[in-house]
Design a binder for these strands. Structure first.
Lengths: 233, 233
DNA sequence: GATGATTTGTACGTATGTATA
DNA sequence: ATATACATACGTACAAATCAT
């Protein structure tokens, strides 16, 4: 149950769109289960079965599946059925490489546009994360890591770019999660963050981009052997 | 918009999924009309009206609208209706900047991975386009331009990146179309393509990326005044 | 602010196309 | 290959929420 329906009725500043649609609930649940691999690639998704499971009719299930197909999480074969999208090792590698490039692109712009306050926040977060590394607190570090990167997205001053990058990151979240548990990735990740911040502090966008690209490619490389066994073995 | 078919080639190995679904037809039609501005931002889309117009029931219309909402072309306010997404000038600028960065990222990788045959194709296309520039054949140049850029996407050897970039390009297509008609953008565009190819030929990825970024930003700048009157004036 | 009209969200029915024996 | 079973795609019905008066 990952229903993040945190909706206190108090909408202070944001008109907080109410999302009480069954199709949204179903979509989010299925999205999670596909991302985490609980629903295996290639699996056939029967509309009636899902409807029974969620205690609804087929209608909202269909709408959820249609939406998932847009992002390629499921494949719709007209009149034949809906299947959990099969992700090949090559596709995952492509996604990681793209992710690395997107992050590099973000940090380059962020280097030129980050505010003093934001830079300070990044340093604070970075230093605080030292403790998590020492304690090998993988979950906490993963959470910090996401905040760290999303702070950088925001510093691009480009909402669209931030959203796009976050979307790709989200798609890879399931794979990335396991990666930090391997060996000394935590220590290495922390050190690489330091290099990125150093380059940003010097205002060297190209260099911060290079560091970020290396950082992301290291992370992905640390993972690919793992992925190979996990999804294709 | 599931997959921006970058290649309309005959897929020999892929059984070429037939898409004879009403919801797909409706989605594509609406997508076009929104992209071209025929359906103005903010417009309320009544399900029954659309159903009448397409001669169907509300069901496929709803599915089409749900899919369009994923890419943000329409906004769904639960129980209140569906509206054509409102695009602000700032959002458009963000999208163009992102586009420039994505293209730069693609051409950098392409520089390192392009095959001799592809490079040759790019040069052929480029030289052939000289005639289009002389004749001020904007439509033909626009078509060439898309091919040119999509050939570069393909040369990245990264399918995911190519698809992502093509998707963003598609989103901006409506705005871009008008841009080439202004002044001597055609001549300038052609010259900039030449610079990009030159950098690629030298194998200088960083430089080709810089040229591409400049190329795209020039194009977008040539457009922003236009857009301002068009969508917000 | 209450009431009626309109529209959405969901359930349900049915025929056509796909799979299977 | 034919027939049977079945899931999907689409249509229709209805309840609840929103809006208009």
């Amino acid at each position: 149950m990952t229903s993040i329906d945190v909706e206190p009725e108090i909408s202070t500043d944001t008109p907080n769109e109410e999302r009480a649609l069954l199709s949204d609930m179903i979509r989010q649940t299925l999205s999670d289960e596909i991302a985490t691999g609980r629903l295996r690639p290639g699996l056939s998704l029967d509309e009636q079965q899902l409807a029974d499971r969620f205690g609804t009719s087929r209608t909202p299930v269909r709408e959820a599946l249609r939406q998932l197909s847009v992002h390629g999480m499921v494949e719709i074969r007209p009149r034949r059925g809906v299947f959990v999208a099969t992700v090949t090792r090559e596709q995952i590698m492509d996604m990681f490489e793209t992710m690395a490039e997107l992050e590099a692109m973000c940090v380059r712009l962020a280097t030129y546009r980050v505010t003093a306050a934001e830079r300070s926040t990044l340093y604070d977060m970075h230093h605080a994360s030292t403790l998590l590394v020492k304690n090998h607190d993988v979950d906490a570090y993963d959470a910090f890591n996401r905040s760290f990167h999303e702070t950088i997205y925001k510093a691009t001053r480009n909402q669209f770019m931030a959203t796009q990058t976050a979307a790709v990151r989200g798609k890879l979240a399931a794979f990335r999660r396991t990666q930090l548990r391997r060996g000394d990735r935590l220590v290495q990740s922390h050190a690489e963050h330091g290099e990125i911040l150093h380059a940003m502090a010097r205002g060297d966008g190209d260099e911060s981009a290079r560091c970020m690209r290396a950082h992301m490619l290291n992370a992905s490389h640390a993972l690919m052997t793992y992925i190979t066994e996990l999804h294709l073995g």
